[in-house]
Amino acid sequence: MNIVVIGKSGQLASEIAKLSVDDTNIICLGRLDIDLLNVDSISEKLIDLAANAVINASAYTAVDLAETEPEQTYLLNSEAVGNLSMACANVKIKLVHVSTDFVFDGKSNLPYSVNDTVNPISVYGASKAEGEKLIQKYLPEQSCIIRTSWVYSTFGNNFVKTMIRFMAEKPELSIISDQIGTPTFAGGLAKICLHAAMNNTRGIHHYTDNGVASWYDFAVAIQELAIEKGLLDKVIPIKAIGTKDYPTPATRPNYSVLDKSTLKEQFPNIELMHWRKQLSKMLDVLKLELS
């Protein structure tokens, strides 16, 4: 089985590339390897690679920059996704697409289900919601959309690695405490995406690690575990602040916990872990890579 992964420079694609499955070839493509703005070109590439399924792990993810670059954001998160959907329809193969908690407005106080109405409050969220619509338009029976949140890994730039760097360099930090979600290790998300690509998994599903946290809680846990593992050699004060104290160009959902109830049926062999346990495992790997 040949599975094509789009977005090879990103943290999710990097985690997928690490996975090993018998009789399965994982082929990672970057922006120079495939033209996502040309449907015919995509179709030809998928035929040349004898692709059986595609995992789209590429996206414009600079949430604040997206507010001033809406055309570029929609180009990558919407138009390119529509093109990829049409190409997969042309060659009759499956598409697994990764979406985001940012398609919701964050005004709920209950975890969002897969059937809740999307209502994005940022350019990034709106572009991802539009990408979802195009998949459902062009490839409704051969697609799987997996929404996730707060993704991190040993690869690329992310909140965990940024916090460790800041904690080593700065005398103190102020972190937002009134935005609630769930940190998600990209390694676990990679397994879900690969499972969906290899099986007849369709529709929209939510995947995150277990538990909930604020960004402040997440930062505190990062410092505690990094100290414990020797990645940091000193403790600095971490102050909890409100969203109003740290204005950003893009509005974030205040509450974006995702209801994962459909996973039990569609991914019966996937073991969900608490986010702090996954964070600990990721930091163990990071320490090995830095040693």
Rank of each mutant, 00 (worst) to 15 (best):
30 G>W: 03
32 L>V: 08
32 L>H: 14
32 L>N: 13
32 L>S: 11
32 L>P: 00
33 D>I: 00
33 D>P: 04
34 I>P: 04
34 I>Y: 02
35 D>Y: 06
35 D>K: 03
35 D>W: 04
36 L>E: 01
36 L>H: 10
37 L>K: 13
38 N>W: 02
38 N>Q: 08
39 V>R: 11
39 V>A: 10
39 V>G: 10
39 V>T: 15
40 D>A: 10
40 D>V: 14
42 I>S: 04
44 E>T: 15
44 E>Q: 15
45 K>T: 12
45 K>N: 02
46 L>Q: 10
47 I>H: 09
48 D>L: 01
48 D>A: 02
48 D>H: 04
48 D>I: 00
49 L>Y: 08
49 L>P: 11
49 L>D: 04
50 A>S: 13
50 A>E: 15
50 A>R: 15
50 A>I: 07
50 A>F: 07
51 A>N: 02
51 A>D: 01
51 A>V: 02
52 N>S: 13
52 N>I: 03
52 N>K: 14
53 A>N: 10
54 V>N: 07
54 V>E: 09
54 V>F: 02
54 V>H: 10
56 N>F: 02
56 N>C: 14
57 A>R: 03
57 A>E: 02
58 S>V: 08
59 A>K: 06
59 A>F: 12
60 Y>L: 06
61 T>D: 11
62 A>V: 06
64 D>G: 02
65 L>R: 12
67 E>T: 01
69 E>L: 14
70 P>E: 05
72 Q>F: 10
74 Y>V: 04
75 L>K: 13
76 L>P: 00
76 L>Q: 12
77 N>S: 13
78 S>G: 07
78 S>L: 05
78 S>V: 00
79 E>R: 13
80 A>P: 08
80 A>V: 03
80 A>C: 13
81 V>C: 12
81 V>W: 09
82 G>T: 12
82 G>V: 01
83 N>P: 01
83 N>S: 04
84 L>C: 05
84 L>Q: 06
85 S>H: 05
86 M>G: 01
86 M>S: 13
86 M>A: 07
88 C>M: 11
88 C>R: 03
88 C>T: 09
88 C>D: 05
91 V>E: 10
93 I>V: 12
93 I>F: 10
94 K>A: 08
95 L>H: 04
95 L>Q: 11
96 V>M: 09
96 V>I: 15
96 V>N: 06
96 V>R: 03
97 H>V: 12
98 V>Q: 00
98 V>A: 09
99 S>V: 07
100 T>M: 08
100 T>P: 05
101 D>C: 14
101 D>V: 09
102 F>D: 05
103 V>Y: 13
103 V>D: 08
105 D>Q: 07
105 D>T: 15
105 D>I: 12
105 D>M: 12
106 G>A: 10
106 G>Q: 09
107 K>P: 00
107 K>W: 00
108 S>C: 04
108 S>A: 13
108 S>H: 13
